[in-house]
Design a protein around this nucleic acid. Structure first.
Lengths: 213, 213
DNA sequence: GTCTATAGCTGGATAGAC
DNA sequence: GTCTATCCAGCTATAGAC
């Protein structure tokens, strides 16, 4: 699979853009037909190529799902890492939760592929999965800003927020019955998990530069 | 589809038991192959009949999924409605959550069909869905025993518990990383949502007989 | 790299005898 | 109701010319 690395400049760039075009067509198709409705025939037609040509860029159908997953995970990490308008640790926590919910509810299929994992034989590769882990690390940092470092509380936080989002997309798609509970969830969570010392506007401990990236 | 109702006694009973046998075979197959791996050929072989005979009992493949869903929902409602050893409202709430988690984690495929909804073209019929709604009503009753009647808090409770269970089965199947947080979740939830009046051992208001059934 | 053509398989569902 | 036999549609993936 290794080619001459010297000629790789614009050639690889072209190949990459062709791959990206196929992945984008796959997303368009999936948003119309659902995650399970992705077929190579339809994908090829949508992308303006013939079905076998798809195999010039992807080894299998699952490789396409993996590329889609990777793109979605990158979007996720990028969105969560954008700068926040506030600095207050508590507001940062709430803003992150709101952002996560907005990201999930704005694209149902993307949410399903990233977080529901219900494509029959597919599991994301470690490379595609990495950006999602990076974003989770961001949550850990923000919790630390709030004085919360217990790993158990990180688990509790993720369960709480993903639970809200899951109920939202499953039982009230397009509405706000559960996402409207985010502020209250933050209050409930902090009241229970935040140590008394960190309760007022006491500044948190120093943390590494670029911790949120 | 309507037959002579006078001859329906043992004849319908035989038909019911044959249906049940097929549904049981379907569950056995699904536990081996996954929810998406249910095919009529394999199902027929497992049930000891020929593929077309399946259509003597079910109109389509989705009708089989629906029967499976109905059976699972009935198990769920039955399990949640079994008598509880304690009477303290707070302990009742925690016991219900533990029971729910145990029910979900003890059978992954059943959990996926009931609560994850990721079978491509399938949606449960209202009849099959009804028992699940009954069980949700039970949660509302127990929350009322704890002095919590705000519908928003019922939503928050379901999000919190389903979030814990979802993280558990997705990220630590067979373990207890998230289910171990149930007690703490109950404490957190009640501290935030329970009115101060109901905090001590004050008895809740009277409620209808058989409210939990 | 891209195409046409097609292999090879599996799936749900049906026909018709018994 | 149950069977054998089969239809037909859809899929992924490959072969081989260009």
């Amino acid at each position: 699979m290794i080619k001459k690395t010297e000629t790789s400049g614009w050639r690889q760039a072209r190949r990459r853009s062709a791959r990206d075009a196929i992945v984008e067509a796959a997303w368009a198709l999936v948003r119309e037909e659902g995650l399970a409705g992705l077929s190579l025939r339809d994908l090829a037609r949508r992308a303006g190529i013939s079905p076998p040509t798809v195999y010039a860029y992807f080894d299998s159908k699952n490789a396409i799902y993996d590329a889609m997953f990777g793109a979605a995970a990158a979007q996720f990490a990028g969105r969560m890492a954008e700068p926040y308008a506030c600095e207050d640790p508590r507001e940062l926590l709430a803003a992150g939760a709101r952002r996560f919910a907005a990201f999930c509810t704005s694209d149902l299929e993307r949410y399903q592929l990233l977080f529901q994992r219900c494509v029959p034989g597919f599991e994301p590769s470690p490379q595609s999965y990495a950006p999602a882990l990076r974003a989770l690390g961001g949550a850990r940092e923000v919790l630390a800003l709030n004085g919360i470092t217990d790993a158990r509380y990180l688990d509790l936080w993720t369960a709480l927020i993903t639970g809200l989002v899951s109920q939202q997309v499953s039982n009230d798609p397009g509405g706000g019955r559960w996402t409207a509970l985010i502020e209250e969830s933050v209050a409930m969570f902090l009241a229970h998990c935040q140590p008394a010392a960190a309760r007022p506007s006491a500044p948190g401990p120093a943390w590494p530069e670029g911790a949120l990236s």
